[in-house]
Nucleic acid binder design. Sequence first.
DNA 1: ATCTATGCAAACCGTTTGCACGCTT
DNA 2: AAGCGTGCAAACGGTTTGCATAGAT
Lengths: 154, 154
Amino acid sequence: MRHDEVIHRLRAQGYRLTQQRRLILNALAAHHGHVSARELHRIVARQAPAINLATVYRTLHWLERVGLAHAIDAGEHQRLYEYAATDDHHHLICRSCGAQQEIDHAVFDALRERLLERYAFVADPRHIAIFGWCARCRAAYAPADAAPSRRAAP
Amino acid sequence: MRHDEVIHRLRAQGYRLTQQRRLILNALAAHHGHVSARELHRIVARQAPAINLATVYRTLHWLERVGLAHAIDAGEHQRLYEYAATDDHHHLICRSCGAQQEIDHAVFDALRERLLERYAFVADPRHIAIFGWCARCRAAYAPADAAPSRRAAP
DNA sequence: ATCTATGCAAACCGTTTGCACGCTT
DNA sequence: AAGCGTGCAAACGGTTTGCATAGAT
């Protein structure tokens, strides 16, 4: 695995490599996509039942600090983590069925340029969740490709 | 104020208009931008000290249900609310100084088109927070207009 | 041997809920 | 008079922290 070398560097920096950290980092790296601390705990607990949830939290903070994990920017009411080696990407989330689709960072290039021009702002979107309606649900609901009206009174 | 008529409609639908709801709605509408439940509670408590935090939460849920308030999509580790009459807009947030700038919904038009073409996804971004670096901080840090490198090891 | 990281349990913070009562309708 | 909405207090779920100890260096 790739992180062994990273870990080496970290050890050189005075951090200690414990079984728990190893397990948690592996689980995080193996898990494609986001994980909550709780889920991660459930996963590593299969291999090391004694591991404590607090340790997972502390380790996640540590991984974030040393740059091996990112906390999710946007999204729902729970903090999620992902392995930092993952390429920048974003998500489309369907309001109707909840399906998530990963999209490429490049889709934001035009927007970033525009923000730079108009607002002199260097955008660095790391993990944005964009809500809307996926093709399937749209087809199921209506033939038109217009979004369902949002402010409609019931 | 505009909501009197809305409230009228709601009353017609069988909802009851209490002092608390009136106060909370007014405070929410008067507050430009996002508010947390706690902050809103603090505000209304100035006029009605007996008002309970649970009531604020319940009222916010109710306002959301009837379409008078939106919960914030993206953003930080706290759920925030805003008055629904507010136009769709988004925020640029500086990672360095924390400054927030409101940006127009139209900035997303090109992105929405692209998402529709490429992913057949109808994006409905309501309140996205885009992190990055504002002009001032960028000037202070470096002459170049490049974003500070993100994955740099310390 | 040193001192970091862990386990445990309690604390914390925002949010939700059950219940009896008050107030709008 | 009827019943929705409120206050109160307790419960809840996720996250953090103090403390003694195990374990990596």
